[in-house]
Design a binder for these strands. Structure first.
Lengths: 108, 108
DNA sequence: AGTCTGTGCATAGACAGTCTAAGTATAGGC
DNA sequence: GCCTATACTTAGACTGTCTATGCACAGACT
């Protein structure tokens, strides 16, 4: 696996979290995650857009065409009620799991 | 993805870490990870054994047939020098990445 | 005029890893 | 006799991320 598959399994929850602060278009989601993480996280477009479609299909987010800050057409996504539930649940599970892994990795 | 694909990308480093305390056979590695994590982590055999072969092929671990604690034949794996390097590196990267994710997930 | 970079979306196909599920084999408990 | 636990093996499904490409438009720079 390419070294950067590290995103595997966390992209959804990251996108959901990003949208929890209000609607954003795809490109903005990617930029925001990368900047906020100090470039520690990189979001490839080939991963992001399929992920957005998946989550829309599952009813976690909704899309609406609009205008970006720069006046270009862009698809804005927003969390649905179900998406908010999903975010909550996934976030908790992710933290529980990574805590368990961390305990093992730092054990002596 | 089945809800339990959460192991994705962390199985290798967990196995390497387990072996850092000495040789163990596959079955014991799985049991140990599950117990130590309080059943938070579950290691399927269909994931574990292919992972062991992969890591052996990559020179991170070495195998040797022996006898288990219960007197049954079992394949014992031990870390190679390269495996120790790999563990160190992967562990650091994993922690950096999950820290970045965590910061986002707990942000308000 | 032409090129380059940045914005923004879309999608095909490769790739890799985990999972389910089945099988082998042995041993002990009921 | 059957069930559970130990211990390894492997085929195939599944899914998600990646690379790579394409479209479209705008502004900057030469």
């Amino acid at each position: 696996m390419p070294p950067k598959d590290r995103l595997h399994g966390t992209l959804d929850v990251l996108v959901l979290k990003t949208l929890s602060w209000g609607p954003r278009h795809g490109y903005a989601i990617a930029r925001w995650l990368e900047e906020t993480s100090g470039e520690e996280i990189s979001v490839e477009e080939g991963s992001l857009y399929p992920a957005l479609y998946r989550m829309e299909r599952r009813g976690w987010i909704e899309a609406e065409w609009g205008m970006s800050e720069l006046g270009r057409k862009a698809k804005f996504y927003s969390l649905t009620r179900e998406g908010r539930r999903q975010l909550q649940q996934e976030s908790v599970e992710w933290q529980r799991f990574t805590q368990a892994v961390l305990r093992i990795l730092v054990a002596t």
